[in-house]
Design a protein around this nucleic acid. Structure first.
Lengths: 235, 235
DNA sequence: AAGTGGTCTAGACCACGTG
DNA sequence: ACGTGGTCTAGACCACTTG
């Protein structure tokens, strides 16, 4: 692991273990340089990483401070895939509705940047949180990149498998959000009524080299789902 | 303006002017160093900034590439306040419903981290996009930070005024999202029916020094609003 | 004025991808 | 093997905040 990543994770753990709150001050740069025995740039890089993650904010002339929102039970839209309802204590399970290899829809092919002749793995599943329906998810995985999937993998964490099993590096993603009304099928799977509101998210995941490998369409049970984003400054 | 910011904006303009597409390759680091006559770290910092903004992605051993999603007409949730429906051509107007100085609600005071005795500016307005209702917005501004507001400012861009008029630096924000159902009042302002879906967003804006100064509650017309986020890698 | 974070440099060395 | 981006250093100087 790289120095700056290790330091960032050490600092993050330190904040966690000491239950530091929003606005609490961290040691000054000089102290951190000495503590970790690295140059200023390395510490700076660690802190920039933590700032990007929304863990700290740095104020010139003043110090380095902990950033921590107060609300609990929100799903982070940025800490890519793998939910992680804030501070855990939430049990996520899945039921597979469909799983096969097929030709993609026009829409999926367009997003994945492949032709409709190429194979994709198709996964449709309902996800539950503490026993309640959380969402209905349909995903298309480029078979040319995700060369193998099976039911066992699909019922667990697909992304862990992609990283560890296939050795691929997940990079950036484009996320599209909107509200709408449940159709009959969605309502059925989520145990709600047709016409109820839905929180609808499409995500296109890319590898670090820019290749799109997963296009997902997710319909959330609006009663179970609250999301949050930590944004950084007017870019 | 700092070198790395200037370079970043030059590169961004270059991409814009030449209408580069997703996956198009930019000149290599060496070339950029020579072109802008700066050190490697400075170029790197510029590119990191652009990567954070979702404008490029960098692949070690391969190159620097343009990142550009295809969909048009989506509102960016990250390019903080000031909407900017993608690639413009959209006219945003506002109608003020209420504007005054008052004591905050418990909720607003909690979020702004002030007592209920302190004054806030309260603004309630409906925003329109191309003549259609876009959203109903309620905002609370800490009067101790935003020392002055008036109707003229409120009907234009409040954030521009905060930056230029007051000389304050807008920093990070916490954004909370959910779907729900319109109540009677919201439906009225948006010209929809009670019980229809809504896309609901609360945002807490902070200055760069960490002080919260604006708590906003926004109810979007679900028919007019699609949002997107460009996320970067599993943090 | 002192303290603290931010920018920028020049250069060594490393790690990943491609041909 | 080579090209390309990434990490890390040591140090000079700058800019904002606080007392």
């Amino acid at each position: 692991m790289l120095k700056y990543q290790q330091i960032a994770s050490d600092i993050e753990r330190y904040i966690e273990e000491n239950a530091l709150q929003q606005g609490d001050k961290l040691p000054v740069l000089e102290a951190l340089m000495a503590r970790f025995e690295v140059s200023k740039s390395t510490i700076t890089k660690s802190l920039d990483l933590l700032e990007k993650k929304g863990v700290v904010y740095q104020v010139r002339g003043s110090g380095i401070f902990v950033r921590r929102h107060k609300r609990k039970g929100y799903i982070s839209l940025l800490s890519n895939q793998g939910f992680k309802k804030d501070l855990e204590g939430f049990q996520i399970t899945s039921k597979i509705i469909e799983f096969d290899v097929r030709k993609p829809t026009q829409e999926a092919a367009d997003n994945l940047n492949i032709s409709q002749e190429e194979d994709v793995y198709y996964v449709k599943r309902v996800r539950y949180i503490n026993g309640q329906t959380l969402c209905l998810e349909e995903s298309y995985y480029s078979k040319s990149i995700i060369t193998f999937l099976n039911k066992e993998i699909v019922s667990e964490s697909i992304f862990d498998y992609i990283r560890e099993g296939l050795g691929l590096n997940v990079g950036f993603s484009d996320i599209y959000l909107q509200a709408g009304r449940l159709n009959e099928e969605e309502a059925g799977y989520l145990g709600l009524e047709k016409g109820f509101p839905k929180f609808y998210v499409e995500t296109l995941f890319h590898l670090t080299n820019g290749q799109p490998f997963d296009f997902s369409k997710v319909t959330y049970n609006f009663e179970q789902s609250q999301f949050f984003i930590q944004a950084n400054g007017p870019l």
